[in-house]
Amino acid sequence: MVHYTLTQNPDLVLTVPGKDSPQARSKAMDQLIKLVEDGKIPANLSKGFNPQQFVEVEEPTPMTADATVPDSVNSEDALNQAVQVLNNFATLKLKAQASKAEAMKVRAQVDSLFTDEPVDEAEIERLKEGFKVLKTFAQANMRYREALPQAEHARTVLDQALSLNNSASTASKSAK
């Protein structure tokens, strides 16, 4: 998720799934236009505005653009985002797992570089090839670890949505 604000209106935060990219900025621009058209924010951008002028922020402030949207829409958006986050998290986990075993073998071979034992050229070449696997695993593992807190939050959002559905279905079954 990426969050954008405007220098003209720093209280407004627009949240878009994914990373900062031209597509994400375009989606944020669409949100901004909709908010202006709906009259939820004043259209006081006298010199115009383009997506490159968005300021990326780390955490949304308490007063977000979503504050004016009904709770049912917010919860549906939150659920959709939670599912997307969990989907991405599952992909990251698969990527990390896929290269872990081979990366650990290469890592064990790295120690041979730090001994007094002679190492032949073929072994060095295998290590150099293995470094690519090691790098791939390390990057995937780092992304997986960085995504963990966001995935845990997404799991909580999903659990809350499921508990609402479970309590509603339990109530309807007990009424029958």
Results as ranks from 00 to 15, higher is better:
Val2Ala: 10
His3Leu: 15
His3Asn: 15
Thr5Trp: 03
Leu6Lys: 01
Thr7Glu: 06
Thr7Cys: 03
Leu12Met: 06
Leu12Trp: 00
Val13Met: 05
Leu14Arg: 01
Leu14Gln: 00
Thr15Gln: 04
Val16Lys: 10
Lys19Asn: 13
Arg25His: 14
Ser26Asp: 12
Lys27Met: 14
Ala28Arg: 06
Asp30Ile: 07
Leu32Arg: 11
Leu35Glu: 06
Leu35Gly: 01
Val36Leu: 03
Asp38Ala: 13
Gly39Arg: 02
Pro42Gly: 07
Ala43Thr: 03
Ala43Leu: 08
Asn44Glu: 04
Leu45Val: 01
Leu45Ser: 00
Ser46Lys: 02
Ser46Ala: 07
Lys47Met: 11
Lys47Val: 13
Phe49Asn: 09
Asn50Pro: 05
Gln52Tyr: 07
Val55Cys: 04
Val55Phe: 04
Val55His: 05
Glu56Ile: 05
Thr61Cys: 13
Thr61His: 15
Thr61Glu: 14
Met63Tyr: 10
Met63His: 12
Thr64Asp: 01
Asp71Gln: 08
Ser72Ala: 11
Val73Lys: 14
Asn74Asp: 00
Ser75Arg: 03
Gln84Asn: 08
Gln84Trp: 04
Val85Gly: 04
Leu86Ser: 03
Asn88Ala: 09
Asn88Leu: 06
Thr91Ala: 11
Leu92Lys: 10
Lys93Cys: 08
Leu94Pro: 14
Lys95Ser: 15
Lys95Asp: 15
Ala98Ile: 00
Lys100Thr: 05
Lys100Trp: 02
Ala101Asp: 15
Glu102Asp: 11
Ala103Trp: 00
Met104His: 14
Met104Cys: 01
Lys105His: 11
Val106Ser: 05
Val106Phe: 06
Ser112Trp: 12
Leu113Pro: 09
Phe114Thr: 04
Glu123Gln: 08
Ile124Ser: 09
Arg126Met: 08
Lys128Thr: 04
Glu129Ser: 12
Glu129Ile: 08
Lys132Arg: 08
Lys132Val: 06
Phe137Ser: 01
Phe137Ile: 01
Phe137Thr: 00
Ala138Met: 02
Asn141Ser: 12
Met142Asn: 09
Arg143Asp: 13
Arg145Gly: 03
Glu146Thr: 11
Glu146Pro: 09
Ala147Gln: 08
Pro149Thr: 05
Pro149Asp: 04
Glu152Ala: 09
His153Leu: 14
Ala154Lys: 00
Ala154Met: 03
Val157Ala: 05
Leu158Cys: 02
Gln160Lys: 13
Gln160Trp: 04
Gln160Ser: 10
Ala161Met: 11
Ala161Lys: 12
Ala168Met: 13
Thr170Phe: 12
Ser174Pro: 06
Ala175Ser: 09
